[in-house]
Design a protein around this nucleic acid. Sequence first.
RNA 1: GGACCCGUAGCUCAGCUGGAUAGAGCGUCGCCCUCCGAAGGCGAAGGUCGCACGUUCGAAUCGUGUCGGGUCCGCCA
Length: 592
Amino acid sequence: MSHNIFASMRARVVQALHGVVPDLPEEVVARVEVTPAREPEHGDMATNAALVVAKAARRKPQDIAAALVAVLQADPLVAEAAVAGPGFVNLRLHADAWRRLLPVILRTGEAYGDSTAGAGVRINVEYVSANPTGPMHIGHCRGAVVGDALANLLAKVGHEVTKEFYVNDAGNQVTALAWAAYFRYLQALEVSITEADFSEIVPGGLQYRGDYLIPVGQALAAQFGASLLSADSWIGEPETWLIDVRDFTIAMMLEQITDDLAALGVVHDVFVRERDLVEQGEVHEAIARLELDGLVYRGTLEPPKGKTIDDWEPREQMLFRATAFGDDVDRPLQKSDGSFTYFANDIAYHAHKIARGFDLMIDVWGADHGGYVKRMQAATRAFGGTLDVVLCQIVHVLKGGQPLRMSKRAGTFITLRDLLDEVGPDAVRFTMLTRKSDAQMEFDIDQAVAQTRENPVFYVQYAHARCRSVLRAAGELLGAAAVAPESLAQVPLDSLENEAELALLRRLGAWPRTVEAAAAAREPHRIAFFLYDLAGDFHMLWNRGRDDSALRFLQADRPAETLARVALVAATAVAIRSGLAVMGVTPVEEMR
RNA sequence: GGACCCGUAGCUCAGCUGGAUAGAGCGUCGCCCUCCGAAGGCGAAGGUCGCACGUUCGAAUCGUGUCGGGUCCGCCA
């Protein structure tokens, strides 16, 4: 059930258009838009209807616009219609058309803005998907927030959404992790060996030297005692301990990651483990199916030009014919040791998702995976699926006006947990959504906690707190029953006629179309900007009351007007909560 | 050499999928307030939308080229 006033006006415009210009092709009508007017003098809304059909109708846009105006002026919602510019039709609605949104909003509650635009389309949103080799850091954080908010947004427009985490627990990385954990295990048992000496033993050298594995080593010692050592209390043969240590460590890391995510408010519905896919033979199955379709062959790749690779030598390998689906080159499926590449596993994973019946997959990745998009989309198309990728660009963290250079070696490595401790989950989530995800962003820690307008989190929360404050005071003045949503939904609203009040009303009316547009564009940041603007409208109204006490919400001697204003305030709070819910941010009742 | 992302006000960024005179916050300048309807308010200045062609009624938005910044480029994930 949609309460989108722009959608209903569009329906009226299209109906009028059919009367004015018969036999219009569907695809032409589809381009008709009804959008909010940018300038208040232009009215409330504008439509491009006459402009987009002019060519098909073989008539001048202004003529069609004039004919539309004649029809639309008779519409009971329309106060004024006029031709403007090259053939726009500007519409000014009766104030009542806007006012009657309030009961709808109050009765709908936080579901205001929901729609059925996505009904029947199942979407899998995969995000975070970090290696379980260490704690979550800032780089993961943006993707986590964007993915989570996007999933909420898609659900709000009616999609059936699954939030999914792909655990990369099958590659060399987790073997390296096991070695690093084993070193900490030795330390926990006070086996005397230096990091340098141990690194000599590790195939490829010791990685993951961070302190975060110390508790893992202790836990291993507590769990296994000395049983992972050799008989002479020295380093055991890897085949005797590697798998146990690896699985134990992955489990602990994964638990820490999910704990950190939970602290951020991110909870996935489904975890898929790469190792399970490998062990259940799904990779072989997926590759076999590609072979059947003639999309796999043995060949030799050209070395990349302009980039010298020291030990490059031409090598024949198993390749996926990605170029058949728009990629630049065909992509390797097998390493020289015969095992599958990460890409091959990922193909199996996406085939797995397609087989589970999703109509659309959306992967949220870091910018460093940008070069991977085309091949993955090629692979999913080979399986008859559709993949959208949302790339999240790098986040630079600022503190005290200075960039924090993140370096594991220098110890200025910011974990998600550090950030949450310093800023709090709500501010982290909101701030991460104040930029388009494919643009780099600077995360200014000082700004995220600032109690001023320059901090959008504060500004929006403050607006909600003020709304709640008004509602509490109204309850004391008029009685709790009088300010219950259903009571307010029946209040006469004629007294809402101040320009600032109407501006706020119009903004509230734009919420459903904002949600739909943001979902269609996969751009959750638009929600943050809408809320910032909405908060601005509300604060402006509040400030008017500060200058002129007649404009304050609560007027002890004029209960009818007070109730109408309280209804507007209550609806504003509802819309803010509706938006914050998409972002996963908790609305506050008061500023403290 | 190639692929992908980004170039909009001094700074950080929006710009609703091609619409009308390109917006916000910060900063700057001016005025007001310092009242718990506290954690400021009002107003002003400030832009050849990196640049050049092209597409069309119309371009910050689409295409091509170019310059600048970023990410990445066979057996890492």
